[in-house]
Amino acid sequence: MEQRPKAYVFDIFGTVVNWRYSLAKGLEASAQKIIDESAFSDVDEAVLARARDMTFSDWEWFAFQWYKRYINSGARPKDGQESGKAAGSDRGVQARWTLGGDAEKEQLVHLWHELDAWPDSAAAVTRFAKLGPTAMLSDGSVALLKSLDARNGLRFDQVWGSDTWMAYKPDPAVYLGAAEKLGLRPDEVALVATHLGDLRAAKKCGLKALYVERPFEERYTEAEIDEARRAGWVDMWVPYGPGGLLGIVERLEAMG
């Protein structure tokens, strides 16, 4: 990449916010609250037993199933909503979804609005903003994304979600629409993301592709990742460790 991009659009789930840990933490805490109050309720003992046996790793697995259904659904729910029963139908972990009543389930849906950013995200976005406009570019709804922006003090210049485009990544309308809204050519805009498939689709539309590795986020196999590296799917590749979003912005700042 010879020239620094003029604007930066960001994938959010996994790239900017640590959805896996955040959801698992919230699910575990809400389950424990109901377990603690079970003496005063009529919750089925078998359900309680399954919930008591779940480790934090189990909750992370549960969170992944929930997230997978969210991002793979053809009719994606707005504001991060998802069917609890559908999310927990595997391996019997629907235990949590049968704990409590409708009010508790509604609280779980709100966990999507309480996702925590990766520790480097807010500082990195501030530095990106000195290089050009910044925007959220996610398949989440605008309302959900605004909640995450405010909660984590991210201060993106623009917030664009699935209801902005009535389309989902990797539809070219999303990437090209972002460039159009910014008033720039696609090659003047960079997508920052932790998913190679997202970046490859953006690059096919002419955008620059900046890849940041995050723990457990990449869905490709090791062989596919190696092929992506050799084939030049991305313009910048920042590995695990001390890199993160700050690693990308530091390289960009060094370009002058």
Rank of each mutant, 00 (worst) to 15 (best):
R185E: 15
E213H: 06
H195Q: 12
L184D: 13
L148S: 01
R200T: 06
F128R: 02
N152F: 02
D163R: 13
F128V: 06
F156K: 05
Q158G: 00
R200Q: 14
G161F: 02
G140K: 11
M136T: 15
G140V: 11
Q158D: 15
L145I: 05
R214W: 07
H195F: 04
P170V: 04
V174P: 01
W165L: 06
V192D: 09
V212K: 05
A178P: 00
A228M: 05
P172N: 02
L144D: 07
D198Y: 09
A150F: 00
D187T: 08
R214G: 01
F216Q: 14
A209S: 12
R185F: 03
K146Q: 14
G197A: 11
M136A: 15
D139H: 01
K169F: 03
A135H: 13
L184Y: 02
W160V: 11
K203R: 13
A167W: 02
F156D: 00
A201Q: 09
V159T: 15
K204M: 13
F216C: 09
G206T: 02
L210K: 06
S138C: 08
A173T: 12
K203L: 02
L210W: 09
G140L: 07
P133M: 01
A202D: 13
T134F: 00
E222V: 14
E188H: 04
D198I: 00
G132V: 07
V142K: 12
A167Q: 06
S162A: 15
V212N: 07
F156N: 03
L148P: 00
L210S: 03
E217M: 03
A201S: 14
T164E: 08
V192P: 02
R214C: 01
L191A: 09
A129W: 00
D157K: 11
P133L: 06
A143L: 07
D149F: 04
L137G: 03
Y168W: 03
L182H: 07
L176W: 10
A178R: 08
R155N: 15
W160L: 10
K208D: 05
D157V: 01
A209Q: 08
K204V: 08
D187L: 06
L191D: 02
K203H: 15
G161N: 11
E180Q: 14
D171V: 10
T194Y: 01
P215F: 01
P133A: 10
A228Y: 02
L145N: 04
N152H: 05
E213L: 04
S162Y: 00
R229T: 08
K146A: 07
R230K: 15
T194P: 03
T134V: 01
K130V: 05
A179M: 09
T221R: 03
D198P: 04
V174E: 07
E188Q: 14
W160H: 10
H195D: 06
L145W: 00
L154G: 08
G161C: 09
L196A: 07
E180T: 13
D163M: 14
D226A: 15
T164H: 10
L199K: 10
S162G: 04
A129C: 04
V189Y: 04
T134I: 00
K204Y: 00
D163S: 13
R219C: 05
Y220A: 12
R151C: 01
Y211Q: 11
L176N: 07
R229F: 05
E218Q: 14
N152A: 07
G161E: 12
A167F: 03
R155C: 10
S141V: 05
